[in-house]
Each structure stands twice: as C-alpha cells, then as structure tokens.
C-alpha cells in the first residue's frame, strides 16, 4: 500500500472513531438535558445540566475531529443535526429513555465507569488530536464518575423504595452494557495502529469499579445476560428517532438557522 492511501485509510478510521465517541456524548448529553427543570432536587437539576454541558462540549471536540479527519468540509453542527438514525454511531445504552431518576443515574454510572478508563487509555493514542481531547475530557469525566457512583451507593443502600428502583434500573440497563466491550473490524484496525484500545481491554477496570460500587450499594448485577448491540453500525432502538426528531427539528424546519 502506498503512503497516501495508507494515511487516508487511517484518516477515515479516525473519523469513524471520533464519530462514535462524539455520538455517545451527544446522545447522553441530550438525554441528561431532558431533565432540565424536572429533576427531583435543585442540586440534581443543576448537576444533570452541568454534566450535559460537559458532554455536549466533548461532542464538539469529537465531532470537530471527525470532520477534520473526514476532510469533506462538513461542520460538527451539520453532522449533529443533519444525519438520520442509521448514521448515528452511539451505544444503545445512552439512547435508552430516562425513566425515573434512578434509571437515569444508573445509565450515567454504567457509562461513566467505562468512559473514564477509555479516556485514560486514549491519552496514550498514537494520534495527538485524540490524546488532547481525551486529556481534556478525562478531567471532566472524573467528576461525572465521582458523582454518579456516589449517588448509586446512596440510593442503592438507601430506603426500600430507592433500593428497589436502583435494582430495577440495573436489571433494565444491564443488557446494554455488553456492547461497550465488543470489537468490530474498525476497533481491530484502530488497536493495531495504536490509535485506540481494544474495547475488551476496558472490561476489567469497568467490572472492578461496578463490582465494588454495587457491593457498597447492596445491588446485584444479573448473573446471566445477553448483549444488545448494533449502535455502532447504525442499528438503533426505536428511541433514537424520537431524540433526533426533537433535537433536529429546528435545523430541518429552518435549514441553516443561526443564533
């Protein structure tokens, strides 16, 4: 393979990778923002909005990289607002409906406990741009994980009602966690090029954190489960379409609208 072809292959792999990272942040950020003005306590309302803000900021960085690596002149806004469901590359976990506050927190925790080790690993990427985004985002995500883990423990080991709700959240969300650790051809290519860790290599750190937190929270992970998958190749649950309908309405109804 000649050098230019090889570098364009790497660029397209980086673009697709950045799209996956950006879409996770965008959809989870949007989900969290749905709580704005509706959370059970003012402090939690603010915390959810701030977490959403961090995630949307990280989205801009990742989608910015996706556009740069893709080299087609698209902007992050176009990528966010003008793709349909099948173009989205996020994990199914992050598009699941908010449910009650417990389910929202559990979804955040299960994601954070994966997100932080992922970003730490990406700080060793062969691509300087990935390293820079990971370095920035990891500082914010450390706070996300501290908060979500703390609340999982407080509510899991709380009242009978809060415990039951947190356990129901675990049971509902668990099948969506396996997808985080599955590798496809792109993941293998990225790992071989030293651009990103093998997804499976993050499992031990995640498992260790979840086991420790659940023990403290008196929650049980299901013994048997299966992994729902498809998000990274654009096969999503019905919920994503509703998110996009709300998120993209303005740009579709009034193309190019600006503040």
């Amino acid at each position: 393979m000649n050098a230019p072809a090889s570098s364009s292959v790497v660029s397209s792999a980086v673009a697709e990778f950045a799209l996956r990272k950006g879409d996770n942040c965008l959809i989870l950020g949007h989900r969290n923002s749905e709580w704005c003005g509706h959370a059970p306590a003012l402090e939690e309302d603010i915390a959810l909005a701030n977490t959403a803000l961090d995630l949307i900021g990280q989205t801009q960085l990742w989608l910015g990289l996706a556009c740069e690596a893709e080299g087609k002149g698209r902007t992050p806004d176009e990528v966010a607002f003008l793709r349909d469901v099948s173009g989205y590359r996020n994990l199914l976990l992050v598009e699941q409906p908010n449910g009650d506050f417990g389910r929202t927190l559990m979804r955040q925790y299960l994601f954070d406990a994966w997100h932080l080790p992922l970003l730490k690993a990406l700080m060793g990427s062969a691509d300087r741009r990935i390293v820079e985004i990971a370095e920035k985002a990891s500082k914010e995500v450390a706070y996300h994980l501290e908060r979500s883990a703390d609340l999982v423990v407080r509510l899991g080991d709380g009242t009978a009602e809060s415990h039951a709700r947190m356990q129901a959240a675990v049971d509902f969300l668990w099948p969506y966690t396996g997808e985080m650790f599955l590798a496809d051809a792109l993941d293998e290519e990225l790992a071989a090029a030293g651009l990103a860790p093998e997804p499976g290599s993050l499992k031990a750190a995640w498992q260790e954190h979840v086991t420790r937190t659940f023990a403290e929270a008196t929650l049980k992970a299901p013994e048997k489960s299966f992994a729902q998958k498809g998000g990274r190749r654009g096969v999503h649950s019905e919920h994503l379409g509703y998110i996009l309908a709300e998120m993209q309405f303005l740009q579709r109804a009034y193309p190019g609208a600006n503040w």
Binding site: E43, E44, I46, A47, N50, T51, L53, Y143, D150
Partner: peptide, 13 residues
C-alpha cells in the same frame, strides 16, 4: 459539600 456541581461546571456547592 452539598453538591458536586454548582452554578457553573467549574464550581461545586
């Protein structure tokens, strides 16, 4: 500490 997040992302309450 009352909350990890305060009036802005950079502050706690």
């Amino acid at each position: 500490r009352i909350s990890q997040f305060g009036s802005t992302p950079c502050k706690a309450h």
